[in-house]
Amino acid sequence: MATQKRRTLRELAHSRAGDKGDISNISVIAYDISDFARLEEYLTPERVKQHFAGVVQGEVRRYSLPALGALNFVMEKALGGGVTRSLALDAHGKCLSSAMLSLELPATE
């Protein structure tokens, strides 16, 4: 019987992030283009919003860039009113992109 292994997103992809006002923008880029379909299937806007429950108060939109093996997420109302207004300790893009990479993927054989 094959052993199933849970993996984090960090094992399959890296991320880039930015922020403007109260919007966080996170791109997830597959290390290997062959993993892109798996990421695209699993990383839905709903799943990302659930992962950031309590942080992202607005809409999450996803843009797919298959030629780059990347997904771009735009998360509104994600920075406590904006980087300069938030009392959160460094809760901007880079911290959120690191948190995104901790997301667990479904087990594979």
Score class of each variant (00 low, 15 high):
residue 33 I to V: 03
residue 78 A to D: 02
residue 48 V to H: 06
residue 31 Y to E: 06
residue 9 L to R: 02
residue 34 S to H: 07
residue 65 L to G: 06
residue 66 P to W: 05
residue 85 R to V: 14
residue 41 E to D: 14
residue 46 E to K: 13
residue 29 I to R: 00
residue 10 R to L: 04
residue 6 R to S: 08
residue 109 E to G: 13
residue 62 R to Q: 10
residue 93 G to H: 09
residue 8 T to P: 04
residue 51 H to C: 01
residue 85 R to D: 15
residue 72 N to F: 03
residue 33 I to N: 11
residue 85 R to F: 13
residue 94 K to H: 14
residue 13 A to T: 08
residue 102 S to N: 12
residue 4 Q to K: 12
residue 9 L to I: 01
residue 12 L to E: 08
residue 5 K to Q: 15
residue 39 L to D: 03
residue 55 V to H: 11
residue 13 A to M: 03
residue 79 L to T: 09
residue 4 Q to N: 08
residue 106 P to F: 01
residue 44 T to D: 06
residue 28 V to Y: 04
residue 87 L to V: 12
residue 21 G to F: 06
residue 15 S to L: 00
residue 96 L to A: 04
residue 13 A to P: 00
residue 40 E to K: 01
residue 28 V to S: 05
residue 107 A to N: 07
residue 108 T to V: 11
residue 96 L to F: 10
residue 59 E to R: 11
residue 51 H to W: 09
residue 35 D to F: 01
residue 22 D to L: 02
residue 14 H to A: 01
residue 20 K to R: 13
residue 55 V to N: 10
residue 21 G to M: 11
residue 104 E to W: 10
residue 46 E to N: 08
residue 108 T to S: 13
residue 106 P to R: 02
residue 8 T to M: 07
residue 24 S to N: 10
residue 4 Q to F: 11
residue 51 H to L: 11
residue 83 V to P: 00
residue 14 H to F: 10
residue 60 V to S: 09
residue 46 E to T: 15
residue 59 E to K: 15
residue 30 A to M: 01
residue 95 C to H: 15
residue 97 S to G: 03
residue 87 L to A: 15
residue 28 V to Q: 03
residue 23 I to N: 15
residue 102 S to A: 13
residue 27 S to W: 04
residue 66 P to H: 10
residue 101 L to N: 07
residue 32 D to P: 00
residue 54 G to P: 08
residue 74 V to C: 02
residue 42 Y to S: 01
residue 23 I to W: 12
residue 16 R to V: 04
residue 97 S to R: 07
residue 99 A to F: 06
residue 98 S to I: 13
residue 69 G to M: 05
residue 68 L to H: 11
